[in-house]
């Protein structure tokens, strides 16, 4: 069947409490017709992966502003793979350009820098989150 909205799990990993960006992204994706499972603050990679499994998510989006993306970004990918999930991971927030390369090499599907516009966010998520029609 076509037309099923993509289902995206959004979360913030780690302790940092800046959720303005994540909330805006949640609304942007909703307004682009997607279903957003919003987990908000203080999630762990393992917890988010378990949710992605139960929600049959088409993508996982994580936002980070605490300079720990190089630890937690790859940890998110690993946590999903450990459950046997191929779910693509999108990382957003304060990520310097050099680190974006490193993250991609670690299996992150897309990296959205601090200045990403709404259309860029939607396009990136659409590109990676293809609801499979099995």
């Amino acid at each position: 069947m076509t037309g099923a909205p993509p289902r995206i799990v959004l979360a913030k990993l780690g302790f940092d409490g800046h959720d303005r960006g994540l909330k805006i992204v949640a609304r942007i994706l909703r307004d682009a017709g997607m279903e957003v499972v919003y987990l908000g603050l203080r999630q762990t990679p393992e917890g988010v992966a378990a949710v992605a499994e139960q929600e049959d998510a088409d993508a996982v989006g994580i936002s980070m502003h605490n300079a720990s993306h190089l630890t937690l970004g790859p940890a998110m990918v690993e946590a999903l793979r450990a459950l046997g999930l191929a779910t693509p991971v999108v990382v957003g927030g304060i990520v310097p350009a050099d680190d974006a390369e490193t993250l991609r090499a670690a299996g992150v599907a897309a990296v959205l820098g601090p200045g990403a516009s709404a259309p860029e966010v939607v396009a990136a998520v659409r590109r990676v989150a293809v609801p499979d029609d099995g």
């Binding site: 909205p5 957003v36 919003y38 949710v51």
Partner: peptide, 25 residues
């Protein structure tokens, strides 16, 4: 737009070990 923000499970996940929780729009 047909989109949705599903936010209920956040309050459950802390207690949900072993349970199956699914959000639905």
């Amino acid at each position: 737009t047909g989109g949705a923000i599903l936010g209920d499970r956040v309050r459950m996940d802390g207690f949900a070990a072993g349970a199956f929780v699914r959000s639905m729009a």
